[in-house]
């Protein structure tokens, strides 16, 4: 029995738990990208920086809350600061829409024009972030580090492999479930949510039905901003905050959105987990698992890794390229919110 349980725990510890957390972060990011794509019809390259901005506001608010002595230990103070981060990000997105994107919407600009515009926006937000908070690494997780320590697990279970769950991972998954549930409830059950789906489905007919386009667009930005702030903060909590990282996070996020079928919220979530688990499974060293199952030394002294860990981030790009080649519409094809 232990021969089977040990490798399972090993996989759970290094693939399942981190995969669930990373997948949730990607899914939240991809959901934001997909919303903008469905309603506003463009690929928003600045989404990564918007996430970073949300995380930054949350971090600054965390420092402020701590300075006035507020905390919700053992949970990280950042959770208390998150609403402020969301509000700040909503403000940013609405401002950007008013100053930048609205002009192109009224012009009915092509999606490439939008894309270039969003690159400009990416530059500006990125610059502002580095200007305000600097380019350095910041760890702002002041809560308990572990929900379950590997040593504790070993003692309880008597197995030789440990299973550790970081509290940031648990918080990430928990928050993501709540947020996703709220989004789906909003889109499928409320009048406003349905009007957003209607607008995404058929813009002209939505106008004929008396749906106010400006309102739909504003709500889309508000939701996108909220998602971005939550995703950015959770990623920062889990892996520490570094402005440069978010620029690179855009690609796995787009990969997730496209793999799932861009414009489709369910697809974005599935895509997020597909990307996260592929990254982990392809770069996991199966040596120990094989040793448990088939005994030591059967496969020589190789790590039994499909890809070197160096290529972890490249996995998402490879999947992206393969999906674009084979099924550009993604798993849940078509654009429907």
């Amino acid at each position: 029995m232990e021969m089977l349980l040990n490798p399972l725990v090993l996989l759970a510890n290094f693939v399942l738990v981190p995969g669930l957390a990373y997948g949730s972060q990607l899914a939240l990011g991809a959901l934001g990208v997909t919303m903008v794509y469905a309603v506003l019809n463009f690929s928003n390259f600045s989404h990564g920086e918007v996430m970073s901005f949300g995380a930054m506001i949350t971090i600054l608010s965390t420092y402020w809350l701590k300075s006035i002595g507020l905390s919700i230990s053992p949970l990280p103070t950042a959770l208390l600061a998150l609403p402020l981060g969301i509000l700040g990000t909503i403000g940013l997105c609405l401002l950007l829409d008013r100053l930048v994107f609205r002009f192109y919407r009224h012009q009915r600009a092509s999606s490439v024009t939008y894309l270039i515009v969003s690159i400009g926006v990416m530059f500006v937000i990125g610059g502002v972030i580095r200007f305000v908070i600097g380019p350095n690494d910041r760890n702002f997780n002041d809560g308990d580090r572990f929900l379950l320590k590997a040593r504790e697990f070993k003692e309880i279970s008597g197995l030789s492999e440990g299973l550790a769950i970081k509290s940031s991972q648990a918080i990430t998954v928990f928050t993501a479930v709540i947020v996703v549930a709220a989004i789906f409830w909003f889109l499928n059950r409320t009048r406003t949510g349905k009007s957003m789906r209607a607008y995404a489905d058929n813009q002209d007919l939505a106008l004929l039905s008396g749906i106010n386009p400006d309102r739909v667009v504003s709500i889309t930005w508000i939701i996108t901003a909220g998602l971005a702030a939550v995703a950015g903060t959770l990623y920062g909590l889990d892996k520490s905050y570094k402005p440069l990282v978010y620029l690179h996070l855009v690609l796995p996020i787009f990969a997730a959105a496209i793999v799932g079928g861009v414009g489709n919220p369910l697809g974005a979530i599935v895509g997020g987990f597909v990307i996260a688990f592929s990254e982990l499974l392809l770069t996991f060293a199966y040596k120990k698992v094989a040793a448990y199952l088939f005994g030591e030394g059967l496969f020589g002294d190789g790590l039994l890794q499909i890809l070197s860990t160096d290529y972890k981030f490249a996995v998402s790009f490879m999947i992206l390229v393969v999906v674009l080649l084979i099924k550009p519409t993604g798993i849940f094809s078509g654009k429907s919110l």
């Binding site: 490439v112 690609l251 160096d310 790009f317 992206l320 674009l324 080649l325």
Partner: peptide
């Protein structure tokens, strides 16, 4: 690989491929 795609997909695909080259 990528030229048949719509223009913004082309952008994302080329961005991804350039990252792979760099890796």
């Amino acid at each position: 690989v990528a030229l048949g795609l719509r223009s913004d997909y082309l952008a994302i695909a080329t961005l991804g491929i350039s990252e792979i080259i760099l890796y």
